[in-house]
Write a protein that binds this DNA or RNA. Sequence first.
DNA 1: AAGAGCGCTATACTTTGTCAAGTGGCTACC
DNA 2: GGTAGCCACTTGACAAAGTATAGCGCTCTT
Lengths: 126, 126
Amino acid sequence: MATIAEDGLSRITATDEDSQASGYCPVRAAIQVLQEKWTLHIVRALLEGPMGFNELGRAVGGCNPATLKLRLDHLEELGLLVRTVHSYMPPRTSYQLARAGVDLQRVITAIDGWGREHLSSIPASG
Amino acid sequence: MATIAEDGLSRITATDEDSQASGYCPVRAAIQVLQEKWTLHIVRALLEGPMGFNELGRAVGGCNPATLKLRLDHLEELGLLVRTVHSYMPPRTSYQLARAGVDLQRVITAIDGWGREHLSSIPASG
DNA sequence: AAGAGCGCTATACTTTGTCAAGTGGCTACC
DNA sequence: GGTAGCCACTTGACAAAGTATAGCGCTCTT
């Protein structure tokens, strides 16, 4: 009891432990998804509109096709985007954000604002 | 010219190409920083307050010390956090977000909101 | 006719992250 | 007093993730 009185954070920590105990924490789950390499780049690019596979790879700054495919399939599974096959020969597909993907605009906007304010002298890689 | 008339997005794309031509795009630079494994987890954890090295490793869900150190050093270089040495023996350090790191609250909040709305059935890893 | 582009796949290779052991002391507990 | 746990890392071997590149068969463009 004495330590609770000394440390006002304990009460908040206890709350956090409650949600961890249930095995689910929204922000951590979301970070887990979004931290995968290329994911945020893909979302940012697709917020500009639907794109073909190679077009998208170039738009994100050059992602190798194996990883790009892997990433896109995962994001499609999660419901963030949809893949449309326009023709098999010639092969034509396009990728477009679903509603959950479009809603990441709030995240990209926050990142953009933060980047403008705090990363003004670091050029983009690649 | 006809393609510009058909595709209203071309004007926006041209603007984006301008900033890319100068070699700097804030959102892409920021994404490049934030997409590194553990980074967003680290920021989220430190938004709760300063932490020791091992405490932080546990708080992010279990990051191995080699990568954690590497990541923290990089974030310190970028000015996102500060490392304080309290004593060498026993070894005691703490990590605390700097102003630029605290300002990532807006990003974490956006991610949290998004996660609550769209990832309601996926448990956090680890 | 030749070249570029499409959407990938496959394979060898490189890079990144993990696992586990370890250092030398300090502190708490039995 | 002895033991165990903790601290902040470092190290080296290994696993996982990502990359580079060649290639397929067709369609368009020059």
